[in-house]
Amino acid sequence: MFRRLAPISQAVSFEFEGRPMTAEKGESVALALLASGIQSCRDSVVSGEPRGPYCLMGACFECLVVIDGVPSCQGCQVEVKAGMRVVRQSGARSMDEATPS
């Protein structure tokens, strides 16, 4: 399990699956979830098995989440912001959904 080496000094509040969470300012969504004990952030589109952040540098796409209603966001590439709403990504994104801007 991941843990922070120092206490949070500049807290940012966000929500994951409706639960309030706290992150350090500047952390990625994936890191904030791991540090909060969340190990799975999406389900495999093939097997449905839980998947979680792996490389933390944008190469593996295992950290895909829905952020503020936008699907297929790489959690390791998005800085957590105050008030952000994050939910697990379940299955593949629909081609009918809007493309993030």
Rank of each mutant, 00 (worst) to 15 (best):
M1I: 04
F2L: 13
F2V: 11
R4Q: 08
R4A: 12
L5W: 01
A6Q: 06
A6Y: 03
P7D: 15
Q10D: 15
V12D: 05
S13Y: 01
E15M: 04
F16M: 03
F16N: 00
R19K: 13
R19S: 05
P20G: 10
M21E: 08
T22C: 06
T22N: 07
T22F: 00
A23N: 00
A23M: 01
E24L: 05
K25Y: 06
K25S: 15
G26Y: 05
G26I: 07
G26A: 09
G26V: 08
E27K: 01
E27H: 02
S28K: 05
S28E: 07
S28A: 12
V29H: 03
V29A: 11
V29E: 13
A30E: 04
L31C: 11
L33Q: 03
A35W: 00
A35D: 02
S40E: 12
S40T: 13
S40H: 13
C41E: 05
R42Y: 00
S44V: 09
V45D: 13
V45M: 06
V45T: 15
V46S: 12
S47C: 07
S47Y: 09
G48I: 10
E49V: 07
G52D: 09
P53R: 02
P53I: 11
P53S: 13
Y54D: 10
Y54K: 08
Y54R: 05
C55R: 03
C55T: 10
L56E: 08
C60L: 10
F61G: 08
F61C: 11
E62N: 12
C63D: 12
L64G: 01
L64Y: 01
V66K: 00
V66I: 15
I67F: 03
D68C: 03
D68Q: 04
G69I: 02
V70Y: 08
V70Q: 15
P71T: 09
P71K: 10
P71M: 06
S72I: 00
S72K: 04
C73S: 09
G75N: 07
C76H: 06
C76P: 07
Q77N: 13
Q77H: 11
Q77M: 15
V78I: 15
V80M: 05
A82V: 00
G83W: 03
G83I: 01
G83M: 04
M84P: 06
M84R: 03
R85F: 10
R85P: 02
V86C: 00
R88K: 15
R88E: 05
Q89Y: 05
S90T: 14
S90N: 13
S90Q: 09
G91F: 09
A92W: 01
R93N: 08
S94C: 14
M95K: 10
M95A: 15
D96K: 14
D96I: 13
E97K: 12
A98W: 13
A98K: 15
T99L: 15
T99G: 03
P100S: 09
P100N: 07
P100T: 08
S101V: 10
S101C: 09
S101G: 15
S101F: 12
